[in-house]
Design a binder for these strands. Structure first.
Lengths: 342, 342
DNA sequence: AAACAGGCCGAAAAGGCTTTCGTCAAGCTA
DNA sequence: TAGCTTGACGAAAGCCTTTTCGGCCTGTTT
């Protein structure tokens, strides 16, 4: 009992279907469609029309099997939820998408076992390369050297100096933030930041201090570590005002802390930015735009990080990769919460 | 000028390498590794050890070419940036990842041309199915019926009733939100929502009104449409208090509007939730946790939507799909901004 | 002892494509 | 006209795996 003939089992057209319709061999059909030169123009046209009529689409599996390259890469994130992975992922997807490369997305959910599992699966699918996206800028364990395909680490660098990593330059971020505040005429700058377990927190402190030292200044009080939340921003700025009422600027470790700081300053009757300037890091739109006034912030250029990682992977696939940690610059996005002291 | 021989071009081990090392034919090696029965136990062991020694990993391309199924699906998002795609994507990735299916991620950036391009590319890679993730719940153009692989639409339903779509139930969301406020003893409930161009806004109004009508009540004033921002929340609640100072609850179209509303209420000297209860939609953690008090919100269960879409796609790949729009329930997450009227 | 069953293994085809190389005809030179 | 080049095309191999089927060997049955 065979099924009723119906609409001819939409068996995807193959090259030999095209060849048959065009009255040529598969070899000729292949050459015609791929722009090889040994085909008469008229024949090529016939083949192209046949392919169109059958809406033929070459099977990339077969092609990849033969070529040894698949035109696919694996994107391994450690947590999609965290907001840092997304822009990086977008940048990478963008850079690859333009170049006919398809991206396998794998989320390890911060679990090493699951990560290992995904790496195996991706290698089984013969990806041409791997991008590993971390959720924080602290070094992470290398995937190892014997994978057979190039690997680029993004945001979180590998702990193996032989690997290639692309990270945002947090030290520079701290530096340009303070430089902006100095340019606004502020000299009594305090720093409230997040979890001391994060390298990003310390790097930004380092940059901030360096920029101040260049002008012969130093921070008002010590940097205040806490967590990355608005609540901590509110609490810390309250303490700060009690101890150092003279501050004229608060540099906050991220936008949420900054948002909390601004709220408390306003409630204490201090004007932002007239009395105290405030700025954050990350340039997270939902935070900067909800803030009154709009929040100045350092954009970490994460999409750029993703794009750079993709390009680096391209390079590594093509030739010999140069091991390195590449730190990309950030930029200050100026909004209402900072302004020149009048 | 050939490159120096170097470390023996790490030619990934193939099945015939394994077979040779184990002293058997590729056929036997394949059967041994795949648990087929016609292999002597001792032979099987030899093959397995050989595979291990060479760290052999079967080439999924070859396997897919033969089997006609690749074990891959395409995930087509219209904008990764928007925060709704991510949880859906996580849910889908999670559901597939467990089942040995790999996910191609493609972001169309809201561009129909690019979307078309990605669809072609994915079909060329012989994906077994497609999930299309929209950025809002309004119907979107169908990809069409003749693709040759099943398609499931998530979040944004297809405009073709023959397609299968999975969406959050916004009407129900509006209903359960109001039911929660009623359960808190509130009866003078106003509604501030976002862009009237969004179906979600209207659906939530519909559900809210239905729940009120069940109790013989109605909204305080008309629903106020605007945009989805904190700024609008602040502006709208200011107007609301002027016109209807009697309100004892404000249902906000999303968490950002709610956040703005809470801020203005506090600044006007009204206590939340004692005088006025406030709740939002989306349960976006950064908003709900930064709010004072913590914000009650309706969680749209988006990860669930992603998982359901993945399962539906599995079903469609296996058997005949049933066309439908499936609306998934939401849930109220109760926090400090709502409480029973004492 | 002859035939047979069953267990184990290998040869070969298939899947869709690209590429190399051989073939053939037409057009050219000597 | 013989011999050559050139251009256009097709046959076939190869990529890697799975699966079918036939063959061999051993042990068993009449």
């Amino acid at each position: 009992m065979t099924p009723a003939p119906g609409p001819a089992r939409s068996h995807t057209a193959t090259l030999s279907d095209v060849a048959r319709l065009a009255g040529v061999s598969v070899a000729t059909a292949s050459k015609a469609l791929n722009g090889r030169s040994q085909v008469r123009a008229e024949t090529r046209q016939r083949v192209i029309e046949a392919a169109e009529r059958l809406s033929f689409r070459p099977n990339q599996l077969a092609r990849g099997l033969l070529a040894g390259r698949t035109g696919t890469v694996g994107l391994l994130t450690s947590d999609l939820e965290g907001r840092f992975s997304i822009p990086i992922l977008m940048g990478a997807e963008d850079a690859f998408g333009a170049g006919e490369v398809a991206v396998f997305l794998c989320d390890a959910r911060g679990d090493a076992i699951r990560e290992q599992h995904h790496v195996r699966a991706l290698l089984g699918r013969r990806v041409d390369g791997l991008i590993v996206v971390g959720s924080r800028t602290d070094p992470r364990p290398s995937l190892g050297r014997g994978l057979g395909v190039p690997v680029v680490y993004a945001y979180a660098p590998s702990d193996d100096p032989e690997d290639l990593s692309i990270v945002p330059d947090n030290v520079d971020a701290g530096r340009i933030a303070v430089e902006h505040l100095l340019a606004c005429g502020r000299t009594r700058i305090a720093h409230i930041t997040g979890d001391p377990g994060y390298a990003a927190a310390h790097d930004r402190v380092t940059g901030a201090r360096a920029a101040l030292a260049d002008d012969g200044l130093s921070l008002v009080g010590e940097p205040r570590f806490g967590d990355w939340s608005e609540g901590w921003g509110r609490a810390a700025v309250t303490l700060l005002l009690d101890q150092h009422p003279e501050v004229d600027a608060v540099l906050c470790g991220n936008d949420q802390i900054a948002r909390g700081a601004v709220d408390v300053l306003r409630e204490r009757g201090l004007r932002v930015p007239e009395d105290v300037a405030v700025m954050g890091f990350d340039n997270w739109q939902v935070m900067t735009s909800g803030c009154r006034p709009l929040l100045t912030s350092v954009d970490m250029n994460l999409e750029q990080v993703g794009r750079a990682a993709a390009k680096a992977l391209f390079g590594a696939i093509a030739g010999a990769p140069r091991p390195a940690v590449e730190a990309l610059p950030c930029r200050v996005v100026i909004r209402g919460s900072t302004a020149h002291l009048s």
